[in-house]
């Protein structure tokens, strides 16, 4: 087994072994899914149309936004990355492996949701499975890229939670997970377009579930891809091995560039 594959294998097992990661990767999204399936489909029958993509996005955000960044910050602050550096673990592995690991955890959660939602909650199943999987990969890449970038630039656990919640909470309310974005007032709709899950929901609606999409789902996919690439690239560029070296290699404010595709989307698609 190559070093990269062993590292990925170890990181994936850590996601099951560590209680807080287990909570964010599996317990919280699956519990939330069951609750929403039981409650929301009764209150609002149209919710079952988007139950599968909405709950997958909740899982992706819990794993990649709430679960992924904190261990990155903690490892840097504890000097773990210094131990990695002197033993030849490349920065690319440290940045990319948690993203891949998140993808694997989310693939398991997404599979469970997709297989059970139709049977137990009468959810609408995807019509186009190819786009369903492709959009899942894109949204996980985009959100995990942002999660890793937060972990790289954040200086402590409190800041990490604050930044993550700044994306997580508005996404839960505005991205079309709980109610269609078409019901939002224009200002909030513009805010929703700054959030990656809005593009994922739009793409899934238009390309996989046969539902009306407020704007071109292909643009959604392009914006998610661009957002993921920029966030991931910035995470590598801004990565620091060591919190002991007080001056950072690059200005962390550059991380805001990761918002560029979504800002452009909000300007052009609103």
């Amino acid at each position: 087994m190559t070093a990269f594959m062993y590292h990925l294998n170890y990181d994936f097992r850590t996601g099951l072994r560590d209680r807080s990661l287990l909570l964010m990767n599996y317990l919280f999204p699956l519990f939330f899914y069951v609750m929403m399936g039981l409650l929301m489909t009764g209150i609002n029958p149209t919710f079952s149309e988007t139950l599968i993509p909405a709950m997958i996005i909740v899982g992706v955000m819990a794993c990649a936004l709430l679960g992924l960044p904190n261990p990155v910050v903690a490892a840097r602050e504890a000097g773990i990355f210094r131990s990695f550096k002197i033993n030849g673990v490349p920065a690319l592995s440290i940045v990319s492996i948690p993203v891949l690991s998140s993808l694997l955890h989310m693939a398991v959660v997404a599979t469970i949701i997709t297989l059970t939602a139709v049977r137990f909650f009468n959810a609408l199943a995807p019509e186009n499975w190819g786009f369903f999987i492709l959009i899942f990969l894109l949204v996980t890449f985009a959100v995990a890229g942002i999660g890793m970038l937060i972990g790289v630039v954040s200086t402590n656990g409190r800041t990490t939670i604050l930044i993550s919640q700044l994306i997580f909470l508005p996404s839960m309310m505005l991205s079309g997970l709980m109610l269609p974005t078409s019901m939002l007032p224009p200002t909030l709709y513009r805010v929703a377009l700054l959030l990656p899950p809005t593009y994922a929901m739009n793409a899934w609606r238009g390309l996989s579930f046969g539902l009306p999409a407020p704007f071109s789902p292909y643009w959604s996919m392009i914006i998610l891809l661009a957002g993921g690439l920029i966030a991931f690239g910035l995470a590598i560029y801004l990565f620091d091995w060591d919190s002991n070296n007080k001056s950072r290699r690059h200005n962390p404010i550059l991380a805001l560039l990761a918002l560029a595709p979504y800002v452009i989307g909000a300007i052009l698609l609103a």
């Binding site: 850590t14 490892a75 000097g79 131990s83 002197i86």
Partner: peptide, 13 residues
């Protein structure tokens, strides 16, 4: 081969 002053590895490793 280096043994740092503060040995640090992931807690679950």
């Amino acid at each position: 081969g280096v043994q740092l002053q503060a040995s640090a590895l992931p807690a679950s490793m």
